[in-house]
Every structure is written in structure tokens, then in C-alpha cells.
Design a protein around this nucleic acid. Structure first.
Lengths: 328, 328
DNA sequence: CAGAAAACTGAAAACCTTTTCAGATTGATT
DNA sequence: AATCAATCTGAAAAGGTTTTCAGTTTTCTG
């Protein structure tokens, strides 16, 4: 029914092996090659990737495992990964874990069954912690989040530095009572917390951090609480774009405005951060760069499996907007 | 090296066929099944999906072809599709076309080679137009956009109605000079234009439509022009979320505010539309529903290949916010 | 309890390629 | 012109599973 390499071979008066070689661009004499190529065109042959993968033992597939593609950071990441992948003639299969360790495990198992060439993966802290106990048959590059101390290839933002930069910025503008609202699932949130705490201490200020599931709704609930406290902070740092959104929502509900009632700073330079209200001060992540770097690391790891693990740390860029202006 | 079904068979003292049957949950006597299952556990066997696909001739893979995953509508759609897919034990491979017909063709060809079970696809108008000349070996469900008159399974918003609802709403609030900024690549934008034009005419009003590539930057450029005209409209409709974003950006640059200087309405109920400025009046699309319906259609088509094509048309929901309040 | 039907199992074929191996051809070198 | 190396080609094996076919065991029926 479907036309295979054999049919092409017959049509071209040649052996299947030769057709295969033409397809793989190996040396076959011009006249034969010619005949095969027209035969391919005539028969409308399309290779069967399953067969090809089975025999050649590599899948041309990379897995992308992220918490939730709806987080704009991961959306942009996935786009970068997909572009790089298809340029290298690879497919991307997409997996959302919802920060759920058991979903993570099931997807990792799936990647194994799929015999993927490699995986790009943003693990929860829980799974990341036992990452070296897990042994994979494929290279894994962690992205946005790291595993146990430098044991795995990874591409992350310099989160401590970025977080500290936010604190510096707020201090520079005269704020001293600076709160932070951090995600509770990722190493990234932890690192941002670390940078925040250190920088606060360095300025002799008392850190005051809260933790929350990294989604707008949960963040809004927490933010409502923080913003309603008697000792409401003068400034609040949100540890990612979704949490920032929750904070903004809570402020709206409480009728508060930045920077008049409280200064706000966060992560992820989503379009709306520039367009909404006063404009929000954020750390911009080089997300396309993160994606491309991850793919590069992956390819290099495939090339040279025994290389020592590498951690690429990219720096964020502080984008100052009016949400952190000191109200006169 | 890798443990296969044969190794399991040996370990269990049984034939490979039996192992296969256990795996596929077919009738095999309890004691054998037991032995096989422990053998599987002991050996750490993981099926090889390529081999399985090659032999069984179905791939458990569905392709998702969208213009750009970064468009939040398609992000949400992909999430819905992925959820449904993995529930049905299928993988999703993701393809971004950038509204580029040649990329569309290459991805469709790829889907063919991948022998996918089916494809969910948001085509450009250009490719959609010749969709019945293309013959695929797999079922295709169009989503968000339709092909030539009801010839293909598809799930779309009732775009004409939704667009008309926006016009009605604006008329009801006393606006008469209502402009529209529409995308220029999709059937959807066309339909929204149609609804807009009709509804305007029905009210004896003159439609005034502009067209633009459906991304924020292009939309901002066009919007700057529209908003700077001497006869700037009293109200402006943006035909999707990205274009709405461009409009908002242009307004900000020009120092205009909704609804004071101009009323704004659009499509896609992104979080920011509720949170930004006055709150933006939009048509909310039941995007998760669209994704699930598409998957359902796909599965039913696989089940019953000869069924007549079906078009599911879902209605949008008008969400009134203050961007369309009549300024006193 | 015999015979028929049903359920179960294993050997081997099949799925479609790529790859290996060996043979054949070509081209270069003496 | 003969030899050697290099290049090219085809036959056949291999990759890991499912499926078919046929044979065996069990269950059911009368």
C-alpha cells in the first residue's frame, strides 16, 4: 500500500541498499543516483521514520519537559528549542509536568521508551534532588533550574545576582522595608531567595520572604495577605512572571497602586510589564539564548559523552520602570 | 545492551509472543502473566516505541501545527491538546509555522513521514485554500481556522457572531465611528472582518477596516497610524490578542487612554486584559474546549474514517470591561 | 466421558529501514 | 599489462516488536 524503499528500488532498477545510500547522501555513481532520484519523485516515496529509527538506533527526537507551557518563560523557551531542533532535523515532543513529580517520572520513563536523543528539562526541586540517583540512557540538559551541585549540564540565569540587583536597585531608590514573594517548587526560586536574603543582609536590612505555588492565583491570594498587613512592606519583589501577575491582581483588588502605595519589582520581561500601569521594573531573562544554549550543550554532550558537566550561567538585565520610583 | 522483549521472555521462561501479549493486556494465564510481570520488573524492561510503531503500524503520535506557540491562544490550545493526548497515551509533536506556507508544507510532509495518527492544524489562508487538493494519509482536524467550505473536520469560534457582538456592544454604548484592525493571514480574521462589516452595515454605519500581520509589533505600527488620523475612530476593534496588545502599545506611545480618547475592544481574554488600565472588553474564547473538541473530532475520525466532515462552532463570550465605557 | 469449542501458547513471519560483508568495478601505479 | 587500492553495488542480516498460524491445553456441552 504505502510505497517503500523497495518499490523505489524496483522502479529504479537498483537495490534497496542503493536507494538508502542515495537518501543518506553517500557515494553512489551519478547515473544511478539520478535514476533513484527520479524514481523517488515518481513514486512519491516518503521515508518511514519508525523503521529508520529502529534500525539506525537514533530517534532524531528530543524531549522538552517543562512545568507548564503556559508560563510565558517556558513558552518562549520551547519556541527557541523547537527552532534549534528543526534546524538540526530533529523533532520536539512536548511534556507538561504541572510541577508534579510523579508526572515528571512518567515523562522521563516515556523519554526512555521513545529512545530520545536527549532531553531538555526543568525539574522540580523534589525530583532534582534525586537526579543523580536516576540514571538515564540519554543526555539531559537542565534548564532554568539546576540539579545537585554542578553534576549535570545546565543553563540557568544567575539568579542570586539578578535577585540582588533588584534589591540594590530598590535600596538605591531609598526603600528599606522590602518583601519578597517566592515560588516554592524550583531551585530557581530558592536561588532568587538566596540572592535577596544576602543582599538585604548586606545592607543591614531584614529580609521578609513568603512562599507560594508559582501561579497567578496562588500568588494573588498570598499577595492579598501581604498587602493587607499592618506592616505592609514599602516594596515587594515577585520571583517570577506568574507571581508578579498575581501580585498585580491583588493590588488591583485592594485598590493599591505602584509605586504610590508600594513599589513592585519582578522577573520576566513580558510585554504587559511595559504596558501596564506605571510599567513594572523587572529582570529580563535572555530566554531565547537560554534555549539555544541548552540545545548547544545537548548536542555537544551527544558529541562528547564523557565531557565534564558544564553549567552555563547567563545574566539577567535589570529593566527599570516606574513601578519602583520613590513616591515623593 | 538494552533489554528487549526477548530477554524478558528468557527470564520468564516463556516466548516473546507471550510477553507481548502480557504487555498488551491480552488473555494469558495468571501464572504465566505473573512470571512475565516479575521478569519485566527484574530486567527493567522498557518497550522500544520505534519497533512497536514499525510493526503495529500506528504511531501513537499526533502532530500539532500552529503558527506560533507564543501566541497565548495557541499556547493554551497546545496545553489542552497535550493533556487530552497523554490521557489517550499519545505523544504530541509541536510545529511552529510562523504563518509561513512553505514551513507548513514541510511540516505536513514531516507528519507524513512520522506516520502520525492525526494532525491538529491551524492553517494559513493560503494553504487552507488548496487543502482539498492535498491528500493526507492521516486525518486532519483544523482548529481556530477553517478550510474550503465544510470539507474538513474543524473546530472554530463563531467568529462572525463574536465580531458582531462586539459591534453591537459598542453601538449599544453609543459609539458609531468604529474601526477595526484585522489580521491578514487567517480565515479567522476574515470571518471576524465579515461579522464586523455586516453588523456595521446592519446599523447603517460605515465599516473602516485595516489589515496587518498578526503580531504586536506590526499591529502597533498600524495602530499608530490609525490613532493619528484626523478622523480617528471613536472605537477600535482588534481581531486578536496580539493585535490588541499592539494597539495598547501604540496608545501608550501616543499618550492616549481608553475609554477617554478611544474605546477599545478585542479578542482573547488574556489575564492582562483584566488587569491593565481600565480593563479591556474582549471576546473570551473557550480555548480549552476548542482543544478538547479538536481531539475528540480527531479520535472519532480515526474511529470512523468515512464520516461526513463536521464543523464544530463554539461561541465566544463577551466580557464587558471599562475600555468600552462611553466617556461622559 | 467423548467431542467440540474456546482459550491459550510458541514459532516464525512481517514491519521498513540501515548496515555489514563480500564481490565487482574502476582507476592508479609499477 | 598486471597488481593494488579505492570505490561502488547488491544480498542478506539486523533492529525489537506485533501478528498470524498452527498446535496444545482447557473448558464446556450433551
Amino acid at each position: 500500500m504505502s510505497v517503500g524503499i523497495k518499490d523505489v528500488a524496483v522502479a529504479a532498477g537498483v537495490s534497496p541498499a542503493t536507494v538508502s545510500r542515495v537518501l543518506a547522501n553517500r557515494h553512489v555513481k551519478p547515473d544511478l543516483r539520478e535514476r533513484v532520484e527520479t524514481a523517488i519523485r515518481l513514486t512519491g516515496y516518503r521515508p518511514n521514520l519508525s523503521a529508520r529509527r529502529l534500525r539506525s538506533q537514533h530517534s532524531n527526537t528530543i524531549g522538552l519537559i517543562v512545568p507548564d507551557i503556559r508560563n510565558p518563560f517556558f513558552t518562549a523557551l520551547s519556541r527557541a528549542v523547537e527552532d534549534a531542533a528543526y534546524k538540526a532535523n530533529m523533532r520536539v515532543v512536548l511534556c507538561n509536568t504541572d510541577e508534579n513529580p510523579s508526572r515528571e517520572m512518567m515523562y522521563l520513563r516515556l523519554m526512555q521508551e521513545e529512545r530520545v536523543t536527549g532531553v531538555i528539562y526543568a525539574p522540580t526541586r523534589e525530583t532534582a534532588a534525586q537526579l543523580d540517583r536516576l540514571a538515564f540512557d540519554f543526555p539531559v540538559v537542565l534548564v532554568d533550574r539546576h540539579g545537585p551541585a554542578g553534576k549535570h549540564d545546565s543553563v540557568v540565569l544567575d539568579n542570586r545576582q539578578a535577585s540582588a540587583a533588584l534589591v540594590e536597585h530598590l535600596c538605591g531608590r531609598g526603600f528599606t522595608h522590602i518583601g519578597g514573594l517566592f515560588g516554592n517548587t524550583s531551585s530557581t526560586a530558592r536561588d532568587r531567595l538566596g540572592g535577596y536574603t544576602e543582599a538585604m543582609s548586606a545592607h543591614g536590612l531584614a529580609p521578609r520572604a513568603d512562599f507560594v505555588a508559582p501561579n497567578p492565583d496562588a500568588a494573588a491570594v498570598a499577595a492579598r495577605d501581604i498587602l493587607s498587613r499592618k506592616d505592609r512592606p514599602e516594596a515587594l519583589i515577585a520571583s517570577n512572571g506568574l507571581i508578579l501577575l498575581g501580585v498585580v491582581q491583588a493590588m488591583r483588588e485592594l485598590g493599591l497602586e505602584a509605586p504610590k502605595d508600594i513599589a513592585i519589582a519582578g522577573f520576566d520581561n513580558e510585554i504587559w510589564t511595559a504596558l501596564m500601569g506605571p510599567g513594572f521594573t523587572v529582570i529580563e531573562q535572555p530566554v531565547a539564548d537560554i534555549g539555544h544554549s541548552a540545545m548547544r550543550l545537548l548536542f555537544e554532550r551527544i558529541e562528547t559523552p564523557d565531557m565534564a558537566p558544564r553549567v552555563i550561567m547567563l545574566s539577567g538585565k535589570l529593566i527599570e520602570r516606574n513601578s519602583t520610583r520613590k513616591p515623593c
